[in-house]
Lab assay of single mutants.
Amino acid sequence: KLLSSIEQACDICRLKKLKCSKEKPKCAKCLKNNWECRYSPKTKRSPLTRAHLTEVESRLERLE
Rank of each mutant, 00 (worst) to 15 (best):
K32V: 11
K44G: 03
K22R: 11
K32T: 15
E57S: 06
S5T: 08
S46V: 02
C30S: 02
T49C: 05
T49E: 00
L2T: 11
A9F: 02
N34K: 13
R14F: 03
E57D: 06
S46H: 01
K26Q: 15
K1N: 15
H52E: 07
I6S: 11
E61P: 02
L63T: 01
K24S: 15
S5C: 11
E7L: 11
R38H: 13
L18M: 15
T43N: 10
S46R: 01
A51E: 08
C27R: 07
E23L: 09
Q8F: 14
P25W: 00
K26L: 14
K32S: 11
L31I: 12
L2A: 13
Q8D: 04
L60P: 02
K44I: 14
E7P: 09
K19I: 04
K22N: 06
P41W: 04
C13N: 02
D11E: 04
K22C: 01
L53Y: 04
C37L: 00
L53W: 04
L18H: 15
T43R: 10
K42N: 08
R50G: 02
S40R: 06
T43E: 15
L3P: 07
H52V: 01
K32E: 06
L63H: 02
C20T: 04
T43Y: 06
P41G: 09
E7Y: 04
L2C: 10
Q8N: 12
P25V: 03
A51Q: 12
P41F: 03
S5M: 12
C27Q: 02
S46G: 00
L60R: 03
A51C: 11
L63N: 03
L31V: 13
H52S: 06
R50S: 07
R14P: 05
E36T: 13
Y39L: 05
N34C: 15
K16F: 07
K29T: 07
H52Y: 13
R45M: 04
A51P: 00
L15T: 11
E36R: 14
K42F: 11
E55L: 10
L3F: 14
L48D: 01
N33A: 11
N34M: 13
E7Q: 09
E61V: 14
E23W: 09
P41T: 08
Q8W: 08
L53R: 07
E61K: 10
C10W: 03
S4T: 10
K29Q: 08
L3V: 11
L63A: 03
A51T: 08
K29Y: 06
L31R: 15
K24N: 15
T43G: 11
L2I: 12
L63C: 11
R59A: 09
C30L: 01
E61Q: 12
K1G: 15
L3K: 01
C30W: 05
I12N: 07
S58P: 04
R38W: 09
C30G: 05
K24L: 10
C10R: 06
N34G: 11
C37Q: 07
L2P: 14
A28R: 14
L60N: 09
I6C: 12
P25N: 07
K1P: 15
L18Q: 08
L48M: 05
I12R: 11
C27F: 06
E23S: 14
K44C: 11
I12D: 12
K1H: 07
L31C: 12
L3H: 08
L3N: 09
K17E: 02
V56G: 02
D11Q: 09
I6F: 13
K24P: 08
E55G: 11
Q8G: 08
R45T: 04
E36F: 11
L63S: 01
E7N: 09
K32D: 07
D11S: 05
L15F: 12
C30K: 01
K17M: 00
P41D: 08
L63E: 03
S5A: 09
H52N: 08
C10E: 08
L2F: 08
K32H: 12
A28L: 10
I6P: 10
E23I: 10
S21G: 09
N33T: 10
V56D: 06
R50V: 05
L15S: 09
C13M: 03
R14A: 11
E36Q: 09
K24H: 14
R45A: 00
Y39V: 08
E55Y: 15
E36N: 15
K16Y: 00
W35Y: 15
E57V: 05
T49G: 00
V56E: 04
S4I: 13
P47S: 07
L2Y: 15
C20P: 02
S58E: 15
L18V: 03
T54C: 09
Y39W: 09
E23K: 12
R14W: 01
T43W: 03
N33Y: 12
K17F: 01
R50F: 02
S40H: 03
P41M: 07
T49Y: 06
K1A: 11
K16W: 04
N34F: 12
S21W: 02
L18I: 06
L53S: 00
K42W: 08
E7C: 10
L48P: 04
P41V: 08
R62F: 11
E64N: 07
K17Q: 06
K17P: 00
L60S: 07
K1D: 09
Q8I: 07
C20W: 00
K44H: 11
E36D: 14
Y39E: 06
A9V: 08
L3A: 13
R59V: 02
I6A: 10
K44V: 15
S46F: 02
Y39D: 00
E36L: 12
T43I: 15
H52W: 11
S58Q: 13
R45W: 01
R38F: 14
V56T: 10
W35K: 11
L18A: 15
L31E: 12
P25R: 04
L31K: 15
A28Q: 14
C20V: 00
Q8T: 08
C30V: 05
K24I: 14
L60E: 01
L18E: 02
K16Q: 01
S40L: 07
R14Q: 05
K29G: 06
W35N: 14
K29M: 06
L53G: 00
L63R: 08
Q8S: 12
R38M: 15
K17V: 04
R45G: 00
S58N: 12
R38T: 15
P41N: 07
K19S: 06
K17Y: 06
T43V: 10
R38Y: 15
K26Y: 12
C37W: 02
W35M: 13
R50D: 06
K42D: 04
R50I: 04
K42Y: 15
R14Y: 06
N33G: 12
C37V: 01
T49V: 06
C13S: 01
E57H: 07
T54K: 06
N34Y: 13
Y39K: 00
K16I: 00
R59W: 02
C13H: 00
T49R: 02
T54Y: 07
S5Y: 10
K29R: 07
I12C: 10
H52D: 01
K32R: 15
